[in-house]
Amino acid sequence: MSFCLETYLQQNDDYEILAAQAGFKDCAMIIRYKAPEIVNVKPGDSVLGVRLIGIPPIPVGIDEENEHIFIPYTKPCHGTAVIELPIDQEEIDNIRKLHIG
């Protein structure tokens, strides 16, 4: 069964919310500031089972050393959040394949 971010956030507590109820552009700036590596993806690209929502290019932050990623997560009533969560090397490689430059 594939990884599902929604389920993960409900059933685990090893992630961190770095910003919440914010605008997309502010969240993108936080990701670019916090992450050692940035992969730019298209709106609608799927990361960890979720299609990312936002203004292109959408930054996904990678901290390979600590095996963490930083992603924007948007809900209609709650705005955009930045979530930092653990990830395995295989998923990091999958995210890098989405890079649009």
Partner: peptide, 15 residues
């Protein structure tokens, strides 16, 4: 009528 709605609209349009 919200920042999130603009993000959703752009995403749906791009797909």
């Amino acid at each position: 009528h919200k920042d999130a709605a603009a993000s959703f609209f752009v995403t749906f349009n791009q797909i």
